[in-house]
Write a protein that binds this DNA or RNA. Structure first.
Length: 272
DNA sequence: ACACTAACCTGCAAGC
DNA sequence: TGCTTGCAGGTTAGTG
């Protein structure tokens, strides 16, 4: 599933829906992370006006006659996907929510049901208001990151995955960015030098941009809105490569748990 | 405020 | 073959 590049790729593949009007909504399984609101049926007759991404959320704005009325907040959780499908294509297990447009059906598919579909009456949902700056924004820079971590004893890996510090850096890309900057994932965040903070900030932006350009990473079941795979996983240097040789020095890649999450690193290249 | 844990679920692969 | 175990891309809520 989806980290930021996968969500961005999904959003982009759904852009052709903008301007189309909803002709029906079906909720097969409302039990996602939070219950899918019945309000979703109110989309019937409304037109998709715009699609945005914020962190790993997709915001879909709907309205009538170009007057915004409602916003639907979609999150893909760990195993979710949104795909465009012909009406007559056979439903798969875990196709939980269907939104019909004139000639095509948008299907929300999520085996683990960690994702969510929420109904917003305005843009000030608490889930959005608490989010830190976007990792690809100008606001997220070395000065900013330094100010947020200079007193943090938590590991640098946990810090860059903390949505109060920066959003959009998931486990795969955090793992890769730390390898490329030769920073051990267990280093206390406040122990990083100025140069390391600069390098890490730049690397996070570079790797996310690169992953978006390649259509994201396909691990297990990720596909974009057109059912296509991503290709970034072919460029991963440490994530998922436990016990394989480091691409730089041939040392065996190790894995530890940081905050319940697997963290791969090279014990030679990334000094504690 | 901070740091850590458990929890939400299913599917898959590895090990016995 | 079949059962059990552990692990998976995220994020919130609750604990001390």
């Amino acid at each position: 599933m989806p980290e930021l590049p996968e969500v961005e790729t999904t959003k982009t593949s759904l852009l052709p829906l903008i301007g189309q009007t909803v002709t029906g909504v079906t909720i097969h399984q409302p039990c996602l992370r939070w219950p899918v609101p019945d309000d979703l049926h109110h989309l019937n007759g409304q037109t998709l006006l715009n699609l945005e991404r914020r962190a790993k959320y997709i915001l879909a704005h709907f309205g009538r006659k170009n007057v915004p009325e409602n916003c639907v907040l979609l999150h893909l959780g760990m195993s979710g996907s949104l795909t465009l499908s012909p009406f007559d294509r056979e439903l798969r297990k875990h196709d939980h929510v269907l939104i019909n447009f004139n000639n095509i059906q948008l299907r929300y598919h999520d085996p683990r049901r960690f994702g969510s579909i929420l109904w917003l009456n305005d843009d000030t949902h608490s889930l959005l208001s608490k989010l830190a700056p976007e990792s690809l924004s100008i606001e997220f820079n070395a000065d900013y990151l330094w100010s947020k971590i200079q007193n943090k004893s938590m590991s640098i890996k946990a810090a860059i995955m903390d949505n109060h510090i920066v959003v959009g850096v998931g486990n795969i890309y955090a793992t890769e960015a730390l390898f490329h900057t030769q920073i051990h994932p267990l280093r206390p965040a406040k122990s990083l030098t100025t140069q390391e903070v600069i390098a890490l900030t730049q690397e996070i932006k570079r790797i996310l941009t690169s992953a978006i350009a390649l259509g994201g990473s396909t691990l297990r079941d990720y596909v974009n809105g057109l059912g296509e795979n991503g290709y970034f996983q072919q460029t991963l240097d440490v994530y998922g490569r436990a016990n394989e040789p480091c691409h730089i020095c041939q040392t065996s890649i190790e894995t530890i748990k940081i905050g319940q999450r697997a963290s791969a690193f090279c014990p030679t290249c990334q000094k504690i």
